[in-house]
Amino acid sequence: MTAAVEVEKLVKTYGSVRAVDGIDFTIETGEVFAFLGPNGAGKTTTVEILEGIRPSTSGQVRVMGRDPWKEGRELQRKIGVIPQDFHFFPKLNSREAIDLYAGLFGVPSRAKELLDRVELSDKADALFENLSGGQKQKLGLALALVNDPQLCFLDEPTTGLDPRARRAIWAVIRGLKAEGRTVFLTTHYLEEAQLLADRIAIINLGHIIAAGAPSEIINRYGRPERLRIVADPALAEPLRRQLGLPVDVQNGAISVELHAKGDALKVLSWVESSGYSYSSFSTAQDTLEDVFIRLVGVSDHSALDLAPEGDSA
């Protein structure tokens, strides 16, 4: 398969700010690629360079075989885009917005089909200014699909949406993948990246600090599985001495790193026989979120928008 996007040594500076500082990545045709990073990491800057609406400072960029800045017009006919903070003409309703886009792209308007697809049919006649944030994003997604693009750039399509609206958009993204389209998704939501993406790149301060399939990233950067025991913290010290496993005390729970298969059993039987009291135990494995937080060096969870709940699908 040919690469849909190829980026080499891409740099973008705004004055003294190095928003993108020499990144390389490739997106294969047909894959969902997620760009994951905290605020100000350089996600939007990168996406806008790929869409041909922002020039790069240096480096090589090819999108569907084209230089996006020089051949932006031709490229933009073939890609679909939801910009971050998508905004549209306040006095047009959803159907008219799609009709307008269809007219500009010179394609027949499939307003009904697209509005159905993003579950916005009930708001077909509502003016853009009267749509809720999530409904606006849905319309943005519908507009991105008007020209039947083979490559879609979705810059934070679900930020600020409630869990239901987010799932609706996830379903559309899965549909895009099923149809063989390539999707470049940026997100703050680790869970979203993990659920949707074939491959992820974690970007921070303009650098890609990890890349690969979600499971690869967790395996490579995640800590080993741990046993978490809610017990008297005094238990920690003898446990470490007796079993020779790394032990950590966090938020009133003792966390023991498990290195071998039988380690969990060994720890439990030792605790049982030690006479110390404990209330519960569970095993824990690093999620993408743990990896992300460690890699990005953010210890404060509140600095991130964490997805409120998981998707069981």
Binding site: Q76, H87, G106
Partner: peptide, 9 residues
């Protein structure tokens, strides 16, 4: 909004 239009032909 101009950015939005510039993404169309």
């Amino acid at each position: 909004l101009f950015r939005q239009l510039s993404l169309t032909p």
